[in-house]
């Protein structure tokens, strides 16, 4: 019971720290690719401190509730995702001690799919509470972008669930640790998931939701001060959740937290490298792209999986 409570406190904290670190890392990496020096890695912390102490404006209860719900949803999602560790008997791997996943036995991957909705839908509601036209446009784009990447993402998830015959992420991870990683056993799904990764993270070329130059950062147009600080943290955690899911499904999780986080950084860097050199696409292009190559690959993998069962 005590370890469980420790895990429940520990995993959001890990997510929080890593999320802020990822945000800083992404700014440096992009700066270096642009041949700039870039901000210090702790720049997001400075920004968050500044935002927390800046005055803000509020358009009413729903406007505030949206932010709180979004952050709460992201924190809850973290609890359902294994952050390294293994169920194998102690001693078989160095530094491994139990699976760090406090709620591994409460619904599995299907719950995670739903909980990942919590954030975007809450932000959409909060943004809708303001009267800003840019927020409306941004939310509409977010919904469509989510539909665009969700079709291949669901195909990927279903292929994995039917390949391993379970809906529990913890079991998928331990099965990968026993045999081959998902990236080898369901390779086309892994490629498809990597192709839609920028869309799920909301980074270029799919940063059309909060496009600052077009629609004044879209849903976030009216958010400032402490609300923006919370949303920055939420964005970071959401990024961490998506990448952690990718690592768990395709790269065999991690036998302990350190290897897990190393894999997370590797995947994140790969996604950032793609993002740093590409321009932004329009929403039509995003829909068309997501529904051709990633969907085709994921579909092919699913047919292979179903036939070979």
């Amino acid at each position: 019971m005590v370890t469980r409570i420790i895990h429940i406190v520990l995993s959001p904290l890990i997510a929080l720290v890593v999320a802020v670190f990822l945000l800083g890392l992404s700014r440096i990496v992009i700066a270096r690719i642009h041949r700039r020096y870039g901000p210090p890695i702790y720049q997001p912390i400075i920004d968050i401190i500044r935002l927390m102490n800046q005055q803000s404006i509020s358009h009413g209860t729903l406007f505030e509730l949206g932010v709180v719900l979004a952050l709460a949803g992201s924190i809850v999602t973290v609890l359902f995702i294994p952050l390294g560790g293994t169920n194998a008997p102690p001693g078989s791997y160095p530094l491994a001690h139990g699976l760090l996943c406090p709620l591994s036995s409460s619904g599995g991957l299907l719950v995670v799919i739903y909980l990942m909705l919590f954030g975007p839908v809450s932000i959409a509601l909060g943004a809708g509470a303001s009267e800003n036209p840019n927020a409306s446009i941004g939310v509409s784009r977010k919904m469509l972008l989510a539909l665009a990447y969700e079709v291949p993402f669901l195909l990927v998830i279903l292929a994995i669930m039917s390949h391993y015959g379970t809906i529990s992420i913890a079991e998928i991870v331990s099965r990968q640790q026993d045999s081959a990683w998902g990236v080898f056993s369901v390779p086309l799904s892994a490629v498809a998931a990597f192709l839609i990764l920028p869309a799920m993270l909301g980074i270029r070329p799919f940063d059309l939701v909060g496009a600052p130059q077009e629609i004044a950062s879209g849903p976030l147009a009216e958010y400032g001060g402490r609300y923006l600080a919370l949303l920055t943290i939420q964005n970071g955690i959401q990024v961490f959740v998506v990448i952690a899911l990718f690592v768990n499904l395709f790269l065999g999780g991690g036998v302990n937290v350190i290897t897990f986080l190393l894999k997370v950084f590797a995947v994140f860097l790969a996604a950032e490298l793609v993002s740093a050199v590409l321009p932004r696409v329009r929403i039509e292009n995003a829909l068309r792209f997501c529904w051709t190559w990633p969907t085709g690959l994921a579909l092919a993998q699913m047919i292979i999986t179903v036939v070979s069962r």
């Binding site: 700014r27 700066a31 642009h34 041949r35 700039r36 020096y37 870039g38 901000p39 210090p40 720049q43 400075i46 920004d47 500044r50 800046q54 803000s56 404006i57 600052p212 130059q213 004044a216 950062s217 976030l220 147009a221 009216e222 958010y223 400032g224 001060g225 923006l228």
Partner: peptide
């Protein structure tokens, strides 16, 4: 703000709306 002088190293960043800026 771009590669030549890079204001971001001082933490200066362009934002799109006054709500987010100082």
């Amino acid at each position: 703000i771009t590669a030549r002088w890079d204001a971001e190293r001082f933490g200066i960043k362009a934002v799109a709306t006054p709500r987010q800026g100082n």
